[in-house]
Design a protein around this nucleic acid. Structure first.
Lengths: 200, 200
DNA sequence: CAATTAAATGAACGTTCGTTTATTTTATCG
DNA sequence: CGATAAAATAAACGAACGTTCATTTAATTG
């Protein structure tokens, strides 16, 4: 056996990415072997090395693509001239929708950041900090124009993000609440955190 | 070489627990070898098996002790006759103090829960659910006696816990804010989340 | 104080790991 | 359409893994 009929490089690479994403999210980077990723993809372990130089590069690829997609998606969703309350609502809705549809990516981007070595780690961390600067900027603007009453912009930003991300650990699509309901609910919770006047 | 002068079973077991705690928190369960734990303890890998039957048991021991200590500490700190606002403040302060002084335990109890197999997993998960029921009970009591205006008790509980736990990922003792300041700050944030009247 | 138990070593066990290599088959392209 | 590149297999590499074992030494106990 060797190259199989109909095999295509880009396709296999994508299947490998998907398998790795699924397995890393389920069991963690260190606990997943190259052979397991290969098996999930329907290929031999050696074949992975036609597409990714090392296991570390495979993880790095996943996280890099995830963070860059996140950032560019936000830049599309962002509406720069909204007043802070509407801007914050826009961010919350974006964040929830984006993260709930990519829960595995989000999960490993938090859990496996530490599995990245050296500059891979720093690069992803920098992208994350950049993302976190978006809500913080909204909070600061709202604090200075009086639409928010914020206790501490830095801590409140981290509190909001932690609160939103926490959702991915318990939200299941088939639960008590629909995605729309969750979204509306978190919008109100966040409005409370920033001391927004007049909400309900 | 064999048994070393002055060696003591309970002492070594404790050193092993500490080393495992530190290494699991830093690199994750699957990425840490028994040899690494042994080296950190100043012992050979084989010696671990005088104290713990398997690597899995070592992790399970750490998480089990952590969760049981957490629960019994709360039972000590709990003041059952406080009105909901004071009870919630008491919980927040307890949670922050407890978690910041045991950040490694908390970290692995969230990150490595999935590394536990079968009934080990279920047992820890049950203890966690029990812990989460404490704040939820306070919220429900406050909602029914009118001291809180809660959007959704279940979601708000999870939001509060996620918010509080998130702190352990960025709080450093030498940062801008002291532990006391952080504590006071989160008390106010939580009061906002539950729609507590009259706070600042 | 002799016998026993506890605690450790160091070497070895079989497995699995990430990765490499030689080879083969398929697709692509001048 | 023949040469070349791409994509896969299968086998092998040495290293590292969790764990076991025989043995040795120290502490404990009758």
């Amino acid at each position: 056996m060797a190259r199989r009929a109909g095999s295509n490089g880009a396709e296999t690479a994508e299947k490998l990415r998907n398998a790795a994403l699924e397995l890393f999210a389920r069991s963690g980077y260190a606990a997943v072997s190259m052979r397991a990723i290969a098996a999930e993809t329907g290929v031999q372990a050696g074949a992975i090395y036609n597409h990714f130089p090392t296991k570390q590069d495979l993880l790095n690829d996943l996280l890099q693509v995830h963070m860059e997609t996140l950032l560019s998606s936000w830049e599309e969703a962002e509406k720069p001239d909204l007043a802070p309350p509407a801007a914050l609502e826009n961010f919350v809705r974006f964040h929830i929708r984006y993260h709930l549809t990519r829960s595995r990516e989000v999960f490993i981007s938090y859990m496996e950041l530490r599995s990245l070595e050296g500059e891979n780690f720093s690069a992803i961390e920098a992208l994350r900090r950049k993302y976190e600067s978006f809500p913080r900027a909204i909070l600061e603007k709202g604090a200075s124009d009086g639409s928010f009453d914020i206790i501490d912009p830095q801590v409140t930003t981290m509190a909001i993000i932690a609160m939103l991300n926490g959702m991915t650990t318990w939200f299941r699509g088939n639960g008590r609440l629909s995605l729309d309901e969750i979204e509306a609910l978190y919008v109100r919770l966040v409005a409370r955190l920033v001391g927004q006047k007049k909400e309900d």
